[in-house]
Each structure stands twice: as structure tokens, then as C-alpha cells.
Write a protein that binds this DNA or RNA. Structure first.
Lengths: 225, 225
DNA sequence: CATCGAATGTCGGGTGTCCGACGAATCAGT
DNA sequence: ACTGATTCGTCGGACACCCGACATTCGATG
């Protein structure tokens, strides 16, 4: 076994959750890593497109991926996911076409898992199936929370909440205002107005494709309201 | 084995999806039915409340259940689910408190599954775990679709879409306007205005806690826009 | 350093929705 | 049939948001 494979195995074990009551033996993770292929995706390329038949799913190891659908004329962003997320598994398990397109917005490293190899593996190793289950349900939970964040909230509150969630270790969010607007289902102008307010409040600093969080306190204040 | 148990087993097999590549042996369904307890819930009673520690999950066999959370002052409806849906499993698998309350809005029959009995069962029978997984992911899909339905859509379009989805075999939707408003995150008045428009258009008829769909064609026309 | 595409900041006009309020209609219980 | 509680229908004012438009600024590319 190559060292890289071991590394991926360890990474997978961490990514699929840390539930104590589901002890994961090392060979479980290794088996999963062996079943997949590590793929390097360049910025802007697609993992899959809406309508393609779902033969495989992907686990994101590095980078950000955007999920979107055509809706009428334009496209609407369903969600944006990062390392640890599993994508395409819904359609894959149901043996149907993907219901959204997945595009790497940064350079990304993903693990591609073919349906024909994954399903037998999960059936043979119940612990992996259970982990996968818990992981998928966690995703469901965060999606539901996003619904709540969208409902009955002004753009200002939504923007503040998003910045609070998305900031990295240095308090930076590297998104254009247009992208934020798409994520929230708002217009770019309204997002700009909200950012202006937060800036004048001293909660953030804004730059080109970059927002720096200065005061998390004020931010969550504007978010909760 | 009592006849009622057989019936529940058959029902469970149907409810957890019909994926051909996951053949479910009869004893799988029976084992699942045996692991749970059938509970009768009267209108208005709670299956569980937000914050309670999640010891069990529920499969709904009859009736409708409403999921809601406290948000600030009032409560906001997360979703409304019917027969076939599984609820409470997210928190249960994660060993955390329930993140929303579940209340029977009609009389309901549910199967209560204790965590301590279910987890070993799923580990012993991978097919069941996989079915559960596919079912949970389907729920995730419909939640995502609901997000899309909420974003960038007028109340009229949302109401038309909801009626199209929720009508039963006779084209009837038995919900009060206030409930519809909660489901969509809109005000009762706006829902009323949308219904008035659809009524004058000849697409629906309205009554006390009842809406009858007359013309599905016009409805989907108003929904798509 | 010149150029061009992309992103930001800002302005009015138009409108969809919320909110409070009120009366009419419907249902359930004594 | 009377009564109280719930639901429906409707109005006008307030306001957050969308949209189009335009100038400005930033960053990559040669």
C-alpha cells in the first residue's frame, strides 16, 4: 500500500464523522480509500452536470465546490460545500440523473467513488454504511438550518449570519458580493448595502473579493436581531 | 408472530424505498418491525420536543406531523411530513438533543424505534442500513428542492407550487391559510391574496380549512411563471 | 505601463410583502 | 339555536427589496 493511500484513509475516517459508538477499524477506511480514485479538479471545471446519469459520487478533500441548477433563464446556487462534504450520492444511490451541477470554484482535490464498487463495499461493511448515513443526515440538518436562516430574515441579517459562518481562521471571507448574493438569493445591490452598513458599524472591512471580520460580536448582533 | 406485525413489516419494506439493487429479504423487514413499538398519537400531542435528548426515532405510518422550532418569540415551521417519513433519526444517530419539536397535527400512528435496539440491528443487517441511508438522502433532496422553491419566488408562485404538491387524490388540500403561510414563511394576508387570485382565475375553490384544485394546468402555470 | 474585464459603490423608481386592524363567515360545545 | 373561538376576507400605510443604470476601482494580461 502506498503512503498516499494511508493518508487518504486517515482523512476519510476523520471526514465521515467521529461517532464513538461506531468503531471504525483501520481496514474499513483503507477499503474505502482503495475503492475510489483521487482526482484533481482545476478551477472552473465540472465534477458533473445536471442531467448526467449518476454513476459516481465524490468526497471533497480540498477546495470549494458550488452546486447549482438551471432555473428558467439563469442559474441559482443551491449550496457551496467544502472539504469533508459528500456530493452526488443522492442521485447515485437512487440510480437517477444528477439534479444539480457541481463545479469547482477553486482548485480542488476530490475522491471519486464509482457506484458499482461502492455499493458492494458498503453492504460488506455495515460500519461504513452507518457512517455514511450519519454524515448524510448531518448534511440534511445543515440544509434545514439554512432554510431557517433564509426565512423571515432581512438581507442584512442574512449577510451577517453568512459572514459569521464562512469566515476562516483569520476572519476572512473570500467571496465576491455577487456570489454572496447568489448564495442568499438576494440582489448584489442589497448585499452591498448590508456590507456598507456593517462596515460603517466597524464590524467588518471590505476589499476586492474579500471581506475581513473585525468584530464577531457586532456581527452576531446584527445577525440575531 | 402476530398478523399485525406482518402488516407492519410489509409496510416498512414499502416505505423504505424500492431500490432493486438492494434486495430486502422478508426477515429484514420483520426484524425492523420487531425492534420498534407501534404508538398511537392523538391530535396535538408531541412525539418529542426540541432540546430533549434523542433516545429514539419514529417512522410515520399514518397522519401528518409538523416539525417546528422556537425562533426568537414565535415558532417557525421547518417542514410538514406524512406517511413514510422518518423523523428524529438525525439527532438520534448523533447522540444529541432533538433540534426541533415534532407534533402530530392529525391523529397519527407511528413506529417508535429505540436507539439501543436499532443501531445493533442496522449493523447486523447492512441492507437495512443502506435502505435507511437512501431514504434519508431522499429527504435531503426534497429539502433542497424546497429551498429552491422559496428563493426568488413570489408568494403567488409559492402558493401555487405548494397546492400542486400537497393535493390529495381528490385535488383537495386540508390546510388553513395560516398554516400555509407558516410553511412558506409568508404572512397570512399574502397567502389569502394569492388564493383570491387563483380562485378568480378558476384554478381553485376555497373553503373553511379546505382548498380544492380545479385546474392543475392553470396552477402549474402560475407556479412556473 | 497601458488596457480591458471584473468587481464595487451609489442613485432613483417601482413593487411585492409585511403589519395592524376590523368585520364577516364558519365551526364546535353547552 | 345561542355563544365563543377560530378562520377567512379585505383595507391602507410602511418598508425592504429588486431592477436598471452608471461611474469608479481593482487586478490580471500583454
Amino acid at each position: 500500500m502506498v503512503p498516499a493511500l494511508e493518508q487518504h484513509a486517515a482523512w476519510l475516517a476523520k471526514s465521515l464523522g467521529r461517532t464513538d459508538y461506531l468503531p471504525m477499524r483501520p481496514d474499513d477506511a483503507v477499503a474505502l480509500a482503495e475503492a475510489g480514485v483521487v482526482v484533481n479538479k482545476y478551477k472552473g471545471t465540472h465534477l458533473f452536470r445536471e442531467g448526467d446519469f449518476a454513476n459516481a459520487c465524490y468526497i471533497i478533500e480540498e477546495g470549494d465546490v458550488e452546486l447549482y441548477r438551471r432555473s428558467g433563464s439563469g442559474r441559482s446556487v443551491v449550496s457551496r460545500i467544502g472539504p469533508g462534504a459528500v456530493v452526488g450520492d443522492i442521485a447515485m444511490f437512487q440510480e437517477r440523473p444528477y439534479l444539480s451541477s457541481a463545479r469547482a470554484v477553486t482548485g480542488a482535490v476530490v475522491l471519486r467513488l464509482e457506484r458499482d464498487r461502492l455499493v458492494p463495499l458498503l453492504l460488506a461493511r455495515p460500519v461504513l454504511a452507518m457512517r455514511w448515513l450519519v454524515n448524510g443526515l448531518s448534511q440534511l440538518e445543515s440544509t434545514q438550518q439554512r432554510i431557517i436562516r433564509l426565512m423571515n430574515r432581512t438581507v442584512l441579517e442574512q449577510v451577517a449570519g453568512l459572514l459569521d459562518d464562512e469566515q476562516d481562521g483569520f476572519g476572512e471571507v473570500l467571496l465576491s458580493q455577487a456570489t454572496i448574493a447568489e448564495l442568499l438569493g438576494a440582489s448584489r445591490q442589497s448585499v452591498n448595502e448590508a456590507l456598507s452598513y456593517l462596515r460603517s458599524d466597524g464590524a467588518i472591512e471590505t476589499g476586492y473579493r474579500r471581506i475581513t471580520v473585525l468584530d464577531t460580536e457586532r456581527l452576531s448582533l446584527a445577525s440575531a436581531k
